[in-house]
Nucleic acid binder design. Structure first.
Lengths: 107, 107
DNA sequence: ATCAGTACATTGTTATACATAGTACTACTA
DNA sequence: TAGTAGTACTATGTATAACAATGTACTGAT
């Protein structure tokens, strides 16, 4: 779906973290492709990479750079404990938001 | 719930519009109070007013200023047709986002 | 007269997503 | 072997949105 930009704000970080968690280990390019295939058509590489750098700065992920047999080296991301608890918190807030909006919509 | 700030981005506008629609007609102060009572504890007046001004600029609402028997004059907001279709679009996008995040969470 | 409650407005800051562009590596092919 | 497509990451600038903080102003009660 198009023009989700503003709605994505604040969500994207949790989404990317969850993708990393689910895949155990992954890298920027793969995350971008994954997100576009599942329907976030407008997400561009630049956006994902800025999120990843943010996650790194906040120490929510562990990083390992490894060579690829296809193209340049990949920077692999893995959740650490901070990342786990951040993600838990994120889903709690998300759940709350969904509940609130459901109520407001029915109002 | 606290610290929903970032998650609210892009959502608040739709929320405020829906509140206006549901109440048929309302004003900033009432909206702020309403939102804080239903659980958005951190929302402050300033935020709601900036949203309202945005809605006005984008021509999504009609405005009427009327005296109050209690305190200063109130600026009443009412959805117009643009507002209606914006709101419809908003709920569509929101629904899409909820679906996507549900999938991602289960992944 | 002062204060609390009601009501709106403004200004500056910060965070986030995006646009754009660039770098660099590999494999294929003309 | 030069060129191109695909893979992969980085950097810079911009726009938008929510918040913090502050100020104005009106009414009613003490």
């Amino acid at each position: 779906m198009k023009e989700m930009t503003e709605l994505l704000k604040g969500v994207l970080e949790g989404v990317v973290l969850q993708v990393i968690k689910s895949k155990k280990e992954t890298y920027g390019y793969e995350i971008t492709n994954y997100l576009t295939t599942i329907g976030f058509e407008d997400i561009v590489e630049g956006t994902v990479y800025t999120v990843l750098i943010r996650l790194e700065k906040r120490n929510l992920v562990e990083i390992e750079k490894r060579k690829s047999d296809l193209g340049p080296a990949r920077k692999f991301y893995r959740l650490n404990e901070n990342g786990e608890s951040y993600l838990q918190d994120f889903w709690k807030k998300w759940g709350f938001l969904v509940d609130q909006l459901t109520k407001i919509k029915k109002m």
